[in-house]
């Protein structure tokens, strides 16, 4: 069973020289250097929590952040702040009988949402299960499968991303209120308020949250400049991030990137408050289930089998 588990990652041990250099530097000046790569900046240090700012303050902050981002990423980045639409609560559906495990959603998400390329940050994890084995036995799922071709015989796949819990443990956990649930149901993070304690990661039952262990690395020409403050604007080192239902797209009336890209159409999206939406239709008419219902997180992410894949009726 050695196949599935990565060993302690290599390349993170210090080599002796850098270590000594670091030690010397540390000895010479036992002062803590500012955290960000950019110079320390009182405005950003003192920036208020997003929800505590008024519109004027937000505007000012966005102005500053856009400037900072332009310098940092060598590209003009627009940071939107579109608010939740009234009467909308987003929901997601995923047809497990159709997913072929191609991971196109994963990479579309990376592209759309400015995830770090090295180290790789993925907001979606596609799990592979062996057919006929214990169903949703996560422990026997495989995350690092790499076949020549998908779908593979005798396997099926289950993509997992933030389930946008109605009752999100991550929000409960966060000591600083840096993460919260928006009125349209999207759980968001203020990347300028998060202290990087990772308590939310411990709390999330779905492994949805990612931490920027290093400064995100995105080639300038691959940056998506259309961003949202609470969504895909490039993140900082040392803060958490996760799927936001593509807040920058969905609040503009578009589908999430992963819905758009899924070649087999396994992914569905819509407004849970609209009784005529496709998402409501499938919740009402398909056999849906949600992951780890026993946690009472009340996810807004519905898995279903549009078609029988088993012998059962």
């Amino acid at each position: 069973m050695s196949k599935k588990i990565r060993s302690n990652p290599l390349g993170i041990e210090l080599n002796r020289r850098t270590f000594l250099k670091g030690a010397a530097a540390g000895l010479a000046a036992t002062v803590v250097r500012p955290a960000a790569a950019g110079a320390f900046n009182w405005d950003s240090f003192l920036q208020k929590h997003f929800r505590e700012m008024n519109d004027a303050e937000i505007k000012k902050v966005i102005g500053r952040l856009e400037k900072e981002a332009a310098v940092e990423w060598k590209k003009n980045i627009h940071i939107g702040t579109a608010k939740a639409m009234p009467g909308v609560k987003f929901g997601y559906g995923l047809d497990l009988s159709r997913c072929i495990g191609c991971r196109r959603c994963v990479y579309a998400c990376v592209d759309e949402n400015n995830q770090s390329r090295t180290p790789q940050v993925h907001w979606i994890t596609v799990l592979r299960f062996k057919k006929g084995e214990k169903w949703i036995d996560l422990e026997n799922s495989e995350k690092y499968y790499s076949p020549k071709q998908v779908p593979e015989k005798d396997f099926f796949y289950m993509p997992v991303q933030c389930q946008q819990c109605e009752n999100p443990p991550c929000v409960k956990a966060c000591p600083t209120q840096a993460t919260w649930k928006e009125p349209d149901g999207i759980v968001v993070i203020d990347y300028n308020w998060c202290i990087g304690c990772r308590y939310c990661m411990a709390a999330c039952p779905y492994g949805a949250r990612r931490f920027n262990w290093a400064k995100p690395n995105i080639p300038a020409d691959e940056i998506n400049p259309e961003t949202h403050y609470l969504g895909n604007r490039p993140r900082y080192k040392g803060v958490v991030e996760k799927c936001t239902f593509c807040i920058q797209r969905t609040r503009a009336g578009k589908y999430p990137a992963c819905v758009e890209v899924c070649p087999v159409g396994a992914r569905k999206f819509g407004n849970l408050l609209d009784p005529k939406s496709e998402i409501r239709y499938l919740i009402e008419n398909k056999r849906v289930f949600r992951l780890k219902e026993d946690m009472n997180t009340n996810p807004k992410f519905y898995y279903f089998f549009a078609t029988n894949i088993t012998q059962a009726d």
């Binding site: 993170i12 270590f19 670091g22 030690a23 530097a25 540390g26 803590v32 990087g196 262990w213 040392g238």
Partner: peptide, 15 residues
Amino acid sequence: ISAYARQLDDGLIIT
């Protein structure tokens, strides 16, 4: 402290 300084610089990735 010097190790920590490096951690601040490179991020917790060095852990």
